[in-house]
Amino acid sequence: MKCRKIRKLVPLAAGNDLRPRQARAFRVHVEACPDCRAELEAFRRGLAGIRAAARQEGAAEWTEAEWTALMARVGAKAKEESGDRSRGPVAALRPHWAGAAAVGVLLGLVVMGALIKGSSLWRGAGHRKGLPTTAEEQARPEQDKISVTMVSPESGLQVVWILDKNFEWKGDRE
C-alpha cells in the first residue's frame, strides 16, 4: 500500500479496528515508513486524549434518589401492564374475535340484503312494469333452495350455506 492509502486507514488503525487483512498490510507499511508511523502515533495520542476527556465529561452519574424514583416509575408501569396481561389470554384475544365476528355478521347481512333485494327486484320488475311473463317462465318451478358459497382466498376453504326460499337455515357443508 502507498502512503496516501495508509493515511486514510490511520483513524481505524489507531483503535486497532482494521479488518485483519488490512491490518497486516498496514503494519507492513508502517514498519517501513517513518512518516506514516509518526502519523499513526500522533493520531493514537490524540484519540487517547479525546477518549479520556469525553469519558470524564460525558459520564453522568445517578443519584440514589433518581435511580429509586426511576425504578419506582418503571415498576409501577410494569405492574400496570402485567395486570392488563393477567386477565388472561382470552382477554387478549377478545378484540380479534370481536372484530372477526363483526365482519362475519356484516358480511352475512350484506349477502342476505343482496339476495332479498335481487329476488324482490326480479319478481317485482315484471309486476311493476307490467311486462308479460312467458309461459315458460310461468311453468318454471319456483326455486325453493338457494346456496351461498364463501371461499377463503388464503386457505381455499369453501363454506356453503343452504337456505330455503324463506331464507331459513337448511344446513352447510365445507
Binding site: 483513524p11 489507531a14 483503535g15 500522533a42 493520531f43 495520542r45 490524540g46 484519540l47 486524549g49 479525546i50
Partner: peptide, 18 residues
Amino acid sequence: RKKLREAIRKDFPHLEEG
C-alpha cells in the same frame, strides 16, 4: 475520529505531543 481529531487538534495540539 477524523472529525474529532480535526476539531481538537487546532486548539489542543499538546494532545498529540503526548
